[in-house]
Write a protein that binds this DNA or RNA. Structure first.
Length: 917
RNA sequence: GCCGUCUUAGCUCAGUGGUAGAGCACUCGCUUCACACGCGAUAGGUCGGAAGUUCGAAUCUUCUAGACGGCACCA
């Protein structure tokens, strides 16, 4: 078989995905075992406006590793894909598009047409990310792909809204909200970010008192809001202002008179101790206003310009222009006291960075107290969801819940789920899933639907169950209670909810995770998911989060092209769960090299597996006859050793994945494959295999085949490509649940690691061999003996150890590049020899004419020094009465044994050194 | 202001009470018949600092410095 020398990822990446998908390997239905346990994950739906970034690649890798792992174990596995309609993002794209192409505004084309265009936009551009997921090798069930505005998901949204409204958990109210003047919509608290401005100003304005020449000075960072002031407040305990409470202020630039009031809210220490109160434009002022029954004067339009209420001179003026103008006027009037520099943090729109305006507005809210209790209760009683890593996320999640405020859910957009509320002429509201029902409630009166849509996160909050077909209609409940349902007739909702794990980033724990927890429990009575894996952030090469403005992003697709999908995947999986990591190409390069190593190891095995019709039996009993007590039929040490290492590794990999410790699994596999399998096992077996030994060939292919299975969840393309090339692979190697499916490593049984095949003795013996070979290599290297020169190796050891070396003579000869091995109880070598010592043996290499005595002395002294350092530490510990008394006896014995060993080795080395003098 | 995370070899990172690890880079050697994306052999760290608990601390506690994150406030 002709196999290229270097692995080209493209070939494998282009060959398998389509077949996997077409043969239905991704769908849970491929599992033929009616009793199979289920395993389900729903994807955090990426925005339809998005394209794949490193964060997706990381999360998708983890979800795919879990899904492929469980699938190979025989679980009925579903990883459900889908996308989010991303209200504001799509709306913005479509607005830009019609502006650019037709020079029109949304208002020009009207709501209906606009929404139609948005759908077209979604159909045309919304698949970018789903196509990219195919490239990633994501084993999602495309037949169950969902979109948050699909019919059934929209029905679910309406029914949830109506139910919550009927139960009083959703209300409409006049509140100070976060307003983005650019997007012209309200934002929830979580969509507002903060930006620190060092160039901020604190402006001190003098307000004249009525019938007096006194003034009161107030400080503000937003002078333009003074046009909406309806009071000035002071602390009731503030002696400076006590006499002014109840007096009236003539508000400059307006013809209004406003009162001076006393309120505990005011901090006498800050600024001047007098605060201007603008109830319609500040959340704290709003509360003060409610307490004192103040007028709420709205002075700003939805685009950030001033209203007529701000006064004739200001009408239509932008808020920042108005700010300048107010200051100018105060200056002219001699009422500007001073302007101080003041570092300020401003609220900005998460998406467009526009400064958010707190503004009084009537919106829809979800009352969060009972919702919060649902989530807190789950955490308290069941510890659900279980976060990985638990610290700090569980604490942060819980603390956030405890301080939860109501959730603003209406948005002034057209793209999204229009709120199912209708109004009659008198402003009475009728909430119902359909217009017909609303009209019936209104007694047939003319009604008009609320113009707002719901926050995108409202529909995302239902994602864990709306994706499985839940719509909130009565038929949903009907299917749920029959306990006798088989796998075939169970609905997805019965089968797959609760999902097993949610994999996502910490930025949306509040926005999304918490809301899914609450809403899923509330509406289905089930948990949304048992576990939550929080991934870290992949940072740019500069150590900062990747962003367009910093231009430090790394495109996963470029990495796929450069190093291959598999290398990128396994590199991402090698990052400790939850830890942030600075991107570095050399990390991926390591795994690109690893892929090549796997490729070439397989190439070697195949080149030497004889003719194609050689009967190779894979998946056979790897114990190789350990069941037989008779030593003469036992498999060679190297075979027992590699079988032991394979099974130990498999067991540990399963354990690590079960704890979401992907990096541990990767490290185990990397070192098993590269160090144990390639550097030692292949090298040890090379001669036999090249000589055409069928049993050896069969054995090594069997080990390789199992290693490929263990690697498959991380490196799906490479492993499938190679697995298909192995002789003797078939669906007979599949997990029992997939025995009738077409052959693929995807459905092969995942090695669980048989503890009975872990052979401590073989590992210990092999270590003795490895150590001896390493010491000889060290001698060769340090004494600068060319690899082409072969020499005799003397090994002195007790009889039992000699047997080990004797049994592996051929291997030692080859790997130590020796031509003869002399075994004995003691060394019998000329003075001109290089020596070393291991736990199992003394080693000598006669080097007549080649030895540099000075170098050899140095070498020996070096070894003695190292041992001495350790000896000193051990002696110190062992002479400490406290240690000997209090430490566990095993520990003391262990150190004592090590100390004795060191003493023996030191003695031998010292003797050798003296013999040189 | 409150809460939290991180600080380990030149670089990027593992390591939650018992002799400090990996990959890359560095040094030396190798056209060893799978792989130079390779093989072999070295070198490199008082685990940010201080104090404490303990027979024993990178690991637990407190304090402290620096980097970062979340939340709150911001007249």
């Amino acid at each position: 078989m002709e196999i290229p020398k270097a692995y080209d990822p493209k070939v494998a990446e282009e060959s398998h995905y389509q077949r996997w998908e077409e043969l239905g390997f991704f769908a849970p239905e491929i599992n033929q075992d009616p009793d199979a346990p289920k395993y389900s994950i729903v994807i955090p739906p990426p925005n339809v406006t998005g394209s794949l970034h490193m964060g997706h690649a990381l999360q998708h890798t983890i979800m795919d590793v879990l899904t492929r792992w469980k699938r190979m174990q025989g679980y009925r596995t579903l990883w459900l894909p889908g996308t989010d309609h991303a209200g504001i993002s799509v709306q913005r794209k479509v607005v830009e598009q019609i502006k650019k192409v037709e020079h029109k505004s949304p208002l020009d084309i009207g709501r209906e047409e606009f929404v139609r265009r948005a759908w077209t936009w979604k159909e045309e551009y919304g698949n970018t990310i789903t196509e990219q997921m195919r490239r990633e090798g994501a084993s999602v069930d495309w037949s169950r792909q969902r979109f948050t505005m699909d019919g059934s998901l929209s029905t679910a949204v309406k029914n949830v809204f109506c139910t919550l409204y009927d139960e009083g958990w959703i209300y409409r109210g006049l509140r100070i909200v976060n307003w983005c003047p650019k997007d012209k919509t309200v934002l929830s608290d979580l969509e507002v970010k903060e930006e620190t401005r060092k160039d901020g100003k604190l402006t001190y304005l003098k307000y004249p008192l009525k019938n007096s020449d006194r003034t009161v000075t107030v400080a503000t960072t937003r002078p333009e809001t003074m046009l909406g002031d309806t009071a000035v407040a002071v602390n009731p305990k503030d002696e400076r202002y006590k006499d002014l409470v109840g007096k009236t202020i003539l508000l400059p630039l307006t013809d209004r008179e406003i009162p001076i009031i006393a309120d505990e809210y005011v901090d006498a220490e800050f600024g001047t101790g007098a605060v201007k109160i603008t109830p319609a434009h500040d959340p704290n002022d709003f509360l003060v206003g409610e307490r004192h029954n103040l007028e709420q004067l709205l002075i700003m339009n939805d685009d950030g310009t001033m209203k007529a209420a701000a006064g004739k001179d200001f009408e239509g003026v932008d808020r920042f222009e108005a700010r300048k103008k107010v200051i100018e006027r105060f200056e002219e009037l001699g009422l500007l006291e001073k302007i101080e520099d003041y570092e300020i943090t401003l609220p900005v729109c998460e998406r467009c960075k526009t400064i958010v305006e707190p503004i009084l507005s009537e919106q829809w809210f979800v009352k969060m107290d009972e919702m919060r209790d649902i989530a807190l209760e789950l955490m308290k009683t069941e510890g659900v969801p279980h976060f990985s890593p638990q610290v700090p996320h569980e604490k942060v999640y819980t603390a956030w819940l405890e301080n939860l405020k109501d959730w603003t859910i209406s948005r002034q957009l057209w793209w999204g789920h229009q709120i199912p509320a209708w109004y009659d002429e008198d402003g009475n509201v009728y909430v119902a899933p359909t217009e017909a029902e609303a009209k019936a409630k209104a007694g047939g009166k003319e009604i008009k639907q609320d113009q707002d849509v719901l926050d995108t996160w409202f529909s995302s909050g239902l994602w864990a169950f709306s994706t499985f077909g839940w719509t909130g209609q009565t038929s949903d409940q009907l299917t749920a209670h029959s306990l006798e349902l088989t796998a075939k007739t169970k609905t997805d909702l019965d089968m797959f909810l609760p999902t097993d794990v949610l994999v996502t980033g910490r930025d949306i724990i509040f926005l999304w995770v918490s809301r899914m927890v609450m809403l899923t429990k509330k509406f289905t009575g089930k948990k949304a998911f048992e576990d939550v894996v929080i991934t870290g952030t992949v940072l740019g090469k500069d150590g900062k989060p990747m962003s367009k403005s910093r231009n430090n992003g790394v495109d996963p697709l470029e990495m796929f092209d450069k190093f291959g999908v598999d290398a990128t995947r396994i590199y991402l999986a090698s990052i400790a769960t939850g830890a942030d990591i600075r991107w570095n190409d050399t990390g991926v390069e390591t795994y690109r090299n690893f892929a090549n190593k796997i490729w070439n190891a397989t190439r070697f095995c195949l080149m030497n597996s004889g003719s194609a019709d050689t009967p190779v039996r894979l998946g056979l009993d790897l114990a190789g006859g350990t069941g037989d007590a008779d030593k003469s039929v036992r498999a060679p040490l190297a075979d027992r050793w590699i079988v032991s290492r394979l099974n130990r590794t498999a067991g540990d990999v399963n354990k690590a994945l079960g704890k979401y410790e992907f990096h541990t699994a990767v490290s185990l596999l990397f070192h098993f494959f590269w160090d144990d399998f390639c550097d030692w096992y292949i090298e040890l077996k090379k001669d036999e295999i090249i000589a055409g030994d069928i049993a050896a060939s069969s054995q090594i292919l069997s080990i390789l085949e199992q290693a490929l299975r263990l690697l498959h969840p991380f490196m799906p393309y490479l492993t499938e490509e190679l697995w298909q090339k192995l002789p003797g692979v078939s669906n007979g190697l599949h997990n029992a649940a997939y025995s009738s499916a077409e052959q693929t490593i995807m459905l092969a049984d995942f090695p669980i690691g048989d503890p009975a095949l872990i052979d401590e003795a073989a590992e210990a013996e092999m270590n003795a061999v490895i150590e001896a070979i390493s010491k000889v290599r060290n001698i060769r290297s340090e004494m600068s003996i060319s690899p082409s020169i072969k020499f005799t190796v003397h090994l002195a050891a007790e009889a039992a150890k000699q047997d080990i070396f004797r049994a592996n003579e051929a291997q030692i000869l080859k790997l130590a590049r020796a031509d003869k091995i002399v075994l004995g109880e003691t060394l019998d070598v000329p003075k001109a020899s290089a020596k070393a010592v291991t736990a199992a043996a003394e080693i000598a290499v006669p080097l007549e004419g080649l030895i540099d005595f000075e170098k050899e002395r140095e070498r020996l002294q070096n070894q003695i020094d190292k041992l001495n350092t350790e000896h000193e530490r051990l002696s110190g510990q062992l002479s400490n009465a406290n240690f000997v008394e209090k430490a566990p006896p095993e520990k003391v014995a262990e150190l004592q044994a090590r100390k004795t060993e060191i003493e023996q080795q030191t003695a031998t080395l010292t003797q050798n050194l003296e013999a040189l003098n």
